[in-house]
Amino acid sequence: MFALIGDADFDQQWLYNRLRQEASQKAKGNVGAIVTFTGLVRDNNADGNILGIELEHYPGMTEQALTNLVQEAITRFSLTSAGAVHRVGRLYNDEQIVWVGTAAPHRAAAFEGANFLMDMLKQSVPLWKKEFTRDNSRWVEVKASDDKAALAWLREK
């Protein structure tokens, strides 16, 4: 498994190859499914167009929380392997921001695991988005219902 935080752009093919290799080493011949998801920066929010986002994180805790999350997904969905990457710093519209990948014997677990990773990542990993326009910037708000889920998730660690 792998969980990476960094400001550099990432190469999907490299990540896919790494996941496939790790899964193959663990269960050669029985990896029937690999699902990957890539998130990009949209050029708009509810109020209009933006130029991009600035992502702040908590160095140390962010890496650990993402690692915990990937391990949880592997256990919960009996994945052969999984990986996640999240970028931090200033990102402009259309740039890659997040990637998750899951490997499993069958596709259902791989899809579920990828969904779980993305849903929980938005709630349990200390990352904060600030959208900026030409004139100002604004922190992205989160739903109150998400706070509770995030807290519950990390308390289980």
Partner: peptide, 10 residues
Amino acid sequence: LAFFPPVTGG
């Protein structure tokens, strides 16, 4: 000790 708002990654 750290204090921060709810997270908004992804």
